[in-house]
Design a protein around this nucleic acid. Structure first.
Lengths: 211, 211
DNA sequence: AAAAAATGCTACTCGTTAGTAAAAGAGAAT
DNA sequence: ATTCTCTTTTACTAACGAGTAGCATTTTTT
């Protein structure tokens, strides 16, 4: 309603196409990576021609960066929308589950895996860096809270925990297990969460009290 | 001696250069990835010209595949050379530590992270596939042994354990923590091993006996 | 010492891809 | 209805990268 009133048909179509472009970019970035994703790929997938892309985004760099920004905004929104009653540990677990599901549906990981070039490209973008710092700050606080509650290991520095956490969203294990076809998304998410927080070794009942 | 006797100067130089080519390829593959590594890069790093590379390897694909094959051979050698007295868990931990150190020194990860194209390329190579199957088989047996000894969680399928294990060798967390400069290699390896096997959550002393 | 064989290098080809210019087309305003 | 503006497209350019042809050089062999 409010859209149709204010915007012309052309503008509406333009916005819709922009969303389609973002969706295609995200999918292609996640599957092929930045280097192998061509602007022609994106154009073809959206069903428009390459120069039209440049009406929306001024470069490939811009396009890719925007995709990452949207992912991080999604994560920040997810955090902001979480139930206040949740424990810090549950907040972390739920966010990771969300990120893994995003990934399993063809979305992007939190960390740009791979080449320093891509990292450098992202860091050039203020829009991107802002989000990273915000997410980092929020998660760092939650990790500290979880440690205070005894829900995360106090012997690990926060950054070690955080990078281990982030990196799980681009863990190839997810991809490979999905490729297998043996497990559905729920099973993969459950397994991954279990492994991240509890580890591959069984709980050692003798560790705390026995000695 | 035996080399100088049988091989001409030319042949010796040729072999030495071939090693230099492999070393450069490995380093560049690890840092830039397959797509961004150019044959000119390799040639420049070795100090020879591009066409000379093609006397050693018939294509970029060949070159990259050979680098992966050597890594896997290294892993298989490491396994073969392990002390027979080691527990299965220790064997897994030591191999992972070895792989992480390789990675921290600019080497390749076990899993080709990223694009399906690269995966497809590797799978085309029989030399590569042979090694993968061999390593998979050996590690699968060790994992089963470790489970029987209660050293690994029996509730996780072997393949879930294995892919989580493999994927740690290309975990960006390693890269990022190294980038930080705050931790030395030993600390990073120790932290990673600890996280992989024990998880981010503290041991739950109440889990097995209390209920 | 001279011919023979093999390697290394300079200078190319061909294909691919990011990005652009100018024409063609569709919607909006008078 | 007609003009005006904005968008879309076809057809390009420029750069880069994989792989090659043919010449120069160097080692080996007779």
């Amino acid at each position: 309603m409010s859209l149709s009133d204010r915007l012309s048909f052309k503008d509406q179509a333009f916005r819709l196409r922009e969303e389609a472009v973002m969706a295609a970019t995200t999918r292609l970035l996640a599957s092929k990576g930045f280097d192998l994703m061509t602007m022609d790929d994106v154009a073809l997938e959206v069903g428009i021609s390459k120069p039209s892309l440049y009406k929306h985004f001024k470069s490939k760099e811009d396009l890719a960066t925007e995709a990452m920004v949207r992912l991080l905004d999604g994560a920040l929104d997810f955090l902001a929308g979480q139930d206040a009653a949740l424990t810090p540990l549950q907040r972390l677990q739920d966010l990771l589950a969300w990120a893994l599901r995003v990934r399993l549906q063809g979305g992007l990981p939190f960390l740009p895996s791979g080449s320093p070039q891509v990292r450098a490209m992202l860091v050039r973008s203020l829009r991107y860096v802002t989000r990273v710092l915000k997410l980092n700050g929020q998660l760092d606080r939650i990790v500290t809270q979880a440690k205070q509650q005894g829900a995360l290991r106090a012997d690990l520095p926060n950054d070690v925990i955080l990078y281990n956490y982030y990196s799980r969203t681009c863990d190839p294990a997810v991809e490979y297990l999905q490729l297998y076809g043996k497990y559905d998304s729920d099973a993969i998410v459950a397994h991954m969460l279990s492994v991240v927080f509890d580890g591959l070794a069984p709980p050692r009942a003798d560790s705390a009290d026995a000695g």
